[in-house]
Nucleic acid binder design. Structure first.
Lengths: 148, 148
DNA sequence: GTAATTGCTAAAGTTTACTTTAGCTCAAGG
DNA sequence: CCTTGAGCTAAAGTAAACTTTAGCAATTAC
């Protein structure tokens, strides 16, 4: 029962995903979708490609690069709709990444809090701001927030 | 008492900040520092420029773009070392931005949590993942995580 | 059946934040 | 004095993630 009508041209995919046609072509070039072609060379997408591309968009908004997304997607079955198990695994990985990002931001904020009002900009001893001679000599720069 | 010895050439600034010489030149082009020039055209930096550039680095690591940093710095006095009040104001602004970023990530995580295990990838009703026809028709795409 | 729409490719352009290169000039040390 | 090392400029290169353009071909709508 797989009629040709189940396939969609790039414009429809663009409408359904909210992406630009050029972006979708770019994603194909990047190996994130693999539409087939008509005899005349026009792209034909599966319905499940809408979900694939939606996945790309969500993952991007979570801060993943296209190459990271491609890696993650490489673990998904090409043709069939991803299973519940696929989605669970991916969701949990995303959650871990989000947790880490939140943790890091909170630690940064706490350090910043410790500095508000200390006037360190005019002092030589602020761990957050001032690369002292030792650190400066090592070419480290003010990475105290990040490294610490 | 402002001897010429108070001024530093670009190489010294690079050492003290841990930045590349080329990066410092770039920051000058971007209006983030304003070294003066010797008669022969070589850059001479003030000691306080080390702090200016350190500020750039910290702000970048907090996720600000160079143009945002330039705006923030435009509010700082050119010549003198920033005051305690300057630093307090900036710190608080940074803190606000960090808080917002943390909030948003936490909300995203909560939505993701609600989806783990729901199998929505294979359903048509997942608010997180599936752009249904109405949303798709409006060209919205899967921005549920972000917008909601 | 023909015009308007949609699609195609390849290549170049965009933005951010820099680095690298080429070709010179300055400045400091012996 | 003369050789290095440091500096200078302008322009091009880099990476990511796309968009835009140019010049055509295929489809769709009337």
């Amino acid at each position: 029962m797989r009629r040709p009508g189940d396939m969609l041209p790039i414009g429809r995919i663009a409408e359904r995903t909210g992406m630009a046609v050029s972006a979708i072509r770019y994603y194909e070039a990047e190996g994130l979708v693999h539409p087939i072609r008509t005899a005349a060379g026009q792209r034909q997408f599966r319905r499940s490609d809408i979900r694939r591309l939606s996945f790309v968009k969500i993952a991007q908004e979570l801060g993943f690069s296209l190459s990271e997304i491609r890696e993650e997607m490489a673990k998904l079955p090409e043709g069939r709709t991803p299973t519940k198990a696929d989605w669970e695994r991916i969701s949990r990985r995303f959650r871990t990444v989000l947790d880490q990002r939140i943790d890091r931001l909170q630690r940064t904020r706490d350090k910043l809090d410790g500095c508000i009002g200390c006037g360190c900009l005019s002092l030589k001893s602020c761990a957050l701001y001032n690369p002292d001679d030792e650190k400066g000599a090592r070419g480290a720069g003010p990475r105290n927030i990040i490294d610490g």
